[in-house]
């Protein structure tokens, strides 16, 4: 997987973790941070911050925009040449390029990645 896509994918997974751990249902289970004295949410926010520093600011802005718009599924898998986010058929050349390059869906703008 392209390194930029991998970082964006990690970022999205972090955002899902953050969204969940802020809920009362999640907190009721009793998970703790690595150091029990640390605030779990702040630990996650710090880690997210570290991750965002690895992302090109323009890409990060695109990411934030798509996340705001769709609430998730920002970085999606290409499934048989279809976008895994909006399910539109992708041009073969584009679907092929996403194996090595950072490519976005021409329809929804989501970042695409390919898994064998």
């Amino acid at each position: 997987m392209n390194a930029k896509v991998e970082t964006l994918r990690s970022l999205e997974e972090f955002d899902h973790i953050l969204r969940d751990i802020e809920t009362a249902d999640y907190q009721a289970v009793g998970f703790q941070a690595v150091k029990a004295s640390d605030d779990f949410i702040k630990t996650a926010e710090r880690e997210r911050e570290k991750l965002t520093r690895k992302v090109d600011p323009k890409l990060l802005a695109m990411y934030e925009r798509i996340m705001k718009r769709y609430g998730g599924r920002v970085v999606v898998q290409v499934i048989r040449e279809f976008c895994g986010g909006c399910y539109v058929k992708l041009p073969s050349e584009l679907a092929s390029r996403c194996r090595t390059e950072l490519v976005t869906c021409p329809n929804c703008g989501r970042f695409l990645y390919y898994v064998k």
């Binding site: 972090f14 973790i17 289970v29 998970f31 970085v75």
Partner: peptide, 28 residues
């Protein structure tokens, strides 16, 4: 596995008394 490992790095999902609940959301 990478998703779960990342979650474990924030804090263990081992909630004690012999129980662990590894969990995560994934695009897959």
């Amino acid at each position: 596995l990478a998703t779960l490992t990342k979650r474990e790095e924030l804090g263990s999902t081992g909630i004690g008394k012999g129980i662990a609940i590894p969990h995560g959301r994934s695009l897959l």
